[in-house]
Write a protein that binds this DNA or RNA. Structure first.
Lengths: 169, 169
DNA sequence: GTTGGAGTGTCAACAACACTGACATAAGCT
DNA sequence: AGCTTATGTCAGTGTTGTTGACACTCCAAC
């Protein structure tokens, strides 16, 4: 892919920053993200749910007891948009909303047993693909993968990401 | 699953495949993709265009003269969905559609000068972020990034991706 | 040479999910 | 009491995906 055996050191060190390399990275990101969401999407389409429901289930499962506002910040959508999704999940008994004890304005969100089951199913499908990709690529590639993704995030998203990462460990 | 501080080589080598690691990877992918599309989205929202228009412009620019059907396979949407986008782009003079010479059923798509200009603007914004992320991460991380993304694609998408990659060089 | 099937592109209608704007309610804060 | 915060809701709109129906073109079998 990179012809011309340049003997220049500085030239060689920056070859990965050419427009062509960046464009390939962009396209890789596009195609990979499709694969990334393909398995959960397949499962969800049978259930009258969509990707938005998956995201809500994921982050509620990840941060049990989180408030609506917190979820809003993580997901980066409007409350009207989130509310539509949340309403159906609560009505279907997958998510439980509880009035805050200290601050009664807040609603704390948790997965019900049924919600946990669906979240697990979706998570398993997505992790299976991720695991296969990780195993194929190897630990060094995975470390690089994570490094680039983190560098690609907006500042606010990186904060959300790191907060979640720390709670998990 | 995996105790830490293990002196076992095989145990340590697989630490990057734990559920927690995979979940972090999933979340990194989610947040990074938002960053990935943020800049072009901002530009497009001022123009009454959306992400679908960007994708069409990108791949037409990448493979000039491509047919609608080819574009369909790359984008992975229905022809009706693509057609709506294409119609506005053609009406607005960003894309030109030419009946095939050999097979008159086909339409060959090309960017007009105006289309090339917009594609360039969008591309520049997206590449700028990509370049910054690449530079921060370094060449080794970038190589790993690409390796994992390619492993994450579905088979068909990987074919599309590789075909495009080869034409670019 | 006409007919029928496959390939290709277009139009119309509908669903999912995002957005804005406006407003209501309840609870906390000064 | 008055201001702010957190949440929920209604109404309207836009983008992007879907299915269904249909027209045009090519090619091959009859």
């Amino acid at each position: 892919m990179d012809r011309r055996g340049s003997s220049s050191h500085s030239g060689e060190a920056l070859l990965f920053l050419t427009d062509e390399q960046l464009r390939q990275g962009i396209e890789a990101m596009f195609f990979a993200y499709r694969g990334f969401t393909a398995d959960p999407d397949r499962i969800l389409s049978d259930l009258a749910y969509g990707r938005a429901h998956h995201r809500a289930l994921h982050f509620i499962g990840r941060a049990p007891g989180t408030t609506v506002n917190n979820l809003l910040n993580i997901l980066g959508v409007t409350k009207q948009s989130l509310n539509r999704v949340l309403r159906t999940l609560i009505a279907d008994g997958l998510v439980q909303s509880a009035v805050g004890r200290q601050d009664k304005r807040e609603r704390h969100l948790n997965l019900t047993q049924e919600g946990r089951t669906l979240e697990q199913t979706l998570s398993d499908a997505q992790r299976a693909r991720m695991r296969a990709a990780y195993r194929d690529a190897g630990p060094d590639a995975v470390a690089g993968f994570r490094t680039v993704l983190e560098a690609m995030m907006d500042g606010e998203m990186r904060n959300s990401y790191n907060r979640l990462k720390d709670t998990g460990t």
